[in-house]
Structures are given as C-alpha cells and as structure tokens.
C-alpha cells in the first residue's frame, strides 16, 4: 500500500500562534482514521492545515508523495482532498442544488447519486443553504464533499448538534463509505466511541501533537486508556 496523506513534523496555526506543534501522521489509500482529542487539542487545525487554510510554520504535508506547501486550498481540493468543515460551512446565498453543482467533479458520485443518498435534500433542491435544518445542512456538507469524488475525505465533527436519530443515519452512511474502501477518511469527532466504532485506526492529539495511535478496536476495548486520553478533565 502506498501513502496517500502524510504529515511530517507539522507545526501550524493562525498568524503567529502555533496550534499544531510537530504533528506526525501517515495514512494509506483507503484507510480510515478517527482523530480524537480534547477541545483545543488541534483537531480542526490539523484538517484545515491539510486543506492549506492555516499558516504552516514548519514541516511537510504530503499528498500522494507530493509536498503540498505551495498549493492553495482550491488546488488541494481539486487534487482530491474533500473537506467537510466544522459548523458545516453552508453558503446562505446558494441553493442546495448550487452547493452541489458548483463543486461537482467527474466520478461515480454524481449530483443525482448524492440526491439518491440523501432523499431529503432532493426535496429541497431550491432552498437556500442556511434554511435547512441542522441535519440537512450536515447532509449537504457531506454530499458536497462526495460529489467532488475525492480520494481523501476530511470530516470535522459531522455529528455535532444533531438529533440521535440523524446521528445513527449518518453513522450508517459513513460506515458504508468507509467499508467500500475507496476513500481515505479522517473523522474528527467529540464522541470517541462513535468514531471508533466505524473507523479502522485511531490517533489522539494532545497540545498539537499525536500522542497515541492504535487500531480503533483496541482503543475501544481499553476504556481506561481512552478515558485518560480523551475524556474531559
């Protein structure tokens, strides 16, 4: 297997601040990773750094063996890295349909296929992005990533603030996507058990560094370690 995404001694933040401080991570093609850690550990910053939306102070972000340092975010996206931002990143002045058609790229997941996956979005094609319910917004954010037909899917707390029944629905969908094995998936999630239950591997961030890596099944079977690493103090 070849490395799809690699972070080597990555330090990054916003302006002068350093939030990621020597993060190391390597992901194979088709692998799934739960990225865990307490609030402020740098999980969102890590995803944003892969997208090129932070200031890189040092280290290398590699994608398919290539250093991304000089690539602006839109190029990384078009190269195959899709990002589902925290708080969903809806565009209030775009309709549901426009959210998908403006970013869709050739591949098996067409806009019609995305509507098949999320029938509730299909019924609201011409609604503005910010008029949707929280669950629908999250579905749209995920659908928007899927129609890019990416090689890497970065999900930043996709279950945050959703009703339990919607969480179960999305969990099932993500498990299916991961199970198909085509995409490399990084799932940032506050609910550690939920994330571990659908991913193969886990990494724990603490103060901007990866401090623990293990197969997800192993971590879920070891509640005391999990408690020590991610539970709110």
């Amino acid at each position: 297997m070849t490395e799809r995404l690699g972070l080597e001694r990555v330090s990054a933040g916003y302006g002068e601040s350093v939030i990621l401080d020597g993060a190391e991570l390597a992901l194979q093609a088709g692998e799934s990773l739960a990225l865990l850690g307490r609030n402020g550990a740098g999980k969102s910053t890590l995803l944003r750094t892969v997208m090129g939306l932070t200031r890189l102070h040092g280290g290398t972000v590699r994608y398919d063996g290539r250093d991304l340092a000089r690539d602006p975010p839109w190029k990384r996206s078009r190269a195959g890295i899709a990002w589902v931002p925290q708080e969903r990143g809806m565009f209030p002045s775009l309709t549901v349909d426009e959210h998908l058609t403006t970013v869709a790229r050739a591949g098996p997941c067409t806009v019609d296929r995305a509507y098949d996956l999320f029938p509730s979005l299909a019924m609201r094609r011409s609604s503005p992005g910010n008029r949707l319910s929280g669950g629908e917004q999250q579905m749209l954010a995920i659908a928007r990533a899927l129609v890019m037909n990416p090689a890497v899917l970065l999900l930043d707390e996709p279950m945050e603030g959703l009703a339990p029944v919607i969480v179960q629905e999305l969990k099932g969908l993500l498990a299916t996507l991961i199970g198909q094995g085509g995409m490399t998936v990084v799932l940032v999630e506050q609910h550690a058990r939920l994330a571990l239950s659908i991913t193969a591997r886990a990494a724990v961030l603490e103060r901007g560094r990866i401090v623990h890596q293990a197969p997800s099944a192993q971590l879920i079977a070891d509640p005391s370690t999990l408690q020590r690493l991610v539970a709110v103090a």
């Binding site: 839109w74 990002w83 931002p85 565009f91 002045s93 403006t102 990533a145 890019m148």
Partner: peptide, 18 residues
C-alpha cells in the same frame, strides 16, 4: 454561484475547490 459562495465564506469556498 461561485462568486456568491466566495462572498458568503471565502475560506470554505477555497476549501471546496473554488
């Protein structure tokens, strides 16, 4: 639509390939 997305949120627009 791309222009409107950039007005709404330039960072997210950039991050989704615009």
């Amino acid at each position: 639509a791309q222009v409107r997305s950039a007005v709404d949120d330039a960072d997210v627009a950039n991050g989704v390939g615009i």
